[in-house]
């Protein structure tokens, strides 16, 4: 699951499409007016519904259309990582990325990177048919 800012990552995804770039088709893109709109509840709900990984993509730091929305998103992503750790899910399943609308290649690379990372971690234990969690 990816939460993408419409001014950058969402347009970058569009560009990746126009450039006919190949990236794994397992990503679902949710368009946001700004990455700063993303909330810990959105992120946790995605994991609760069984998504294996979530990433938030906002504008390059210092280039947010709403000045600090992407920095705010970064704070919420960090907080959500702590919440995931609390319940015993790997925080690496969640990540924040920054890119501009011209970075179609970066978007494709990001999806590839996240897919690889999650493949290593295995499916989410909250997904039906997922691995069994070993209690710490």
């Amino acid at each position: 699951m990816s939460f993408c800012c419409q001014f950058c990552a969402y347009s970058a995804a569009d560009l990746a499409g126009s450039l006919r770039l190949q990236y794994p088709p397992n990503v679902r893109i949710v368009r946001l007016l700004c990455s700063g709109k993303v909330d810990a509840l959105h992120i946790l709900n995605a994991f609760k519904e069984g998504w294996d990984g979530v990433f938030v993509a906002g504008c390059l730091e210092g280039e947010c259309h709403f000045l600090t929305g992407n920095l705010h998103a970064k704070q919420w992503v960090n907080y959500s990582k702590k919440l995931l750790k609390d319940i015993g899910l790997e925080p690496e399943r969640l990540e924040m990325f920054n890119m501009s609308a011209a970075m179609g290649t970066k978007f494709a690379d990001t999806v590839r990177e996240m897919t690889e990372r999650i493949k290593k971690l295995g499916p989410s234990p909250l997904r039906k048919g997922g691995k069994t969690v070993v209690k710490k």
Partner: peptide
Amino acid sequence: EKEAGLLTTQLQMAFELD
């Protein structure tokens, strides 16, 4: 309300994992 929602989701996930 928001924090109650977050804690509830967190607990639901933790209990499902357990």
